[in-house]
């Protein structure tokens, strides 16, 4: 069975808006340059797409990033991961690898300890056939 505390409802959502509502509680979050999302323009292996998240924040006891949500718009579970930081983290920074079945947008929403929500620009990762070359 599910590990206790695991947010089943947010992960069970099948479309992006539902997943956002169930996790962030909002679907229209303004894009902020403070949220940096790095992903390859073209996936080498749709089964393991490297993603790096960095959010600009002082990470002090009274001003830090509490949660970061990682979404893939059309994945069977659009919410891919959820990260809860503490000031001891020093930096809201994550690197992991995710699955993507087809060309899609990856996006991140970050929540500050003051309750502010910040989004990254959506980043398109292309899943394509190859077979050509110079």
């Amino acid at each position: 069975g599910d590990v206790s505390g695991w947010p089943a409802k947010a992960f069970d959502a099948k479309v992006l808006n539902d997943a956002m509502m169930a996790s962030v509680g909002k679907t229209d979050v303004p894009v902020s340059p403070k949220v940096k999302l790095t992903a390859p323009s073209i996936a080498e292996n749709g089964g393991a797409v490297p993603v790096t998240i960095e959010v600009d924040s002082p990470m002090t006891a009274d001003d830090y990033i509490t949660t970061v949500y990682l979404f893939v718009d059309h994945n069977p579970t659009p919410l891919a991961s959820q990260f809860s930081f503490t000031p001891a983290s020093g930096q809201a920074y994550i690197q992991e690898r995710i699955k993507m079945a087809k060309t899609d947008n990856v996006r991140v929403i970050a929540k500050t300890s003051k309750g502010e929500l910040l989004a990254s620009a959506p980043r398109e990762v292309k899943v394509t056939i190859g077979g050509c070359g110079g």
């Binding site: 797409v49 991961s81 690898r97 699955k99």
Partner: peptide, 16 residues
């Protein structure tokens, strides 16, 4: 961290 099934096999994770 809470993960979905969208995290790749043999998960790699880096943090600070």
């Amino acid at each position: 961290i809470d993960w979905s099934t969208a995290v790749s096999a043999n998960p790699f994770l880096a943090f600070k």
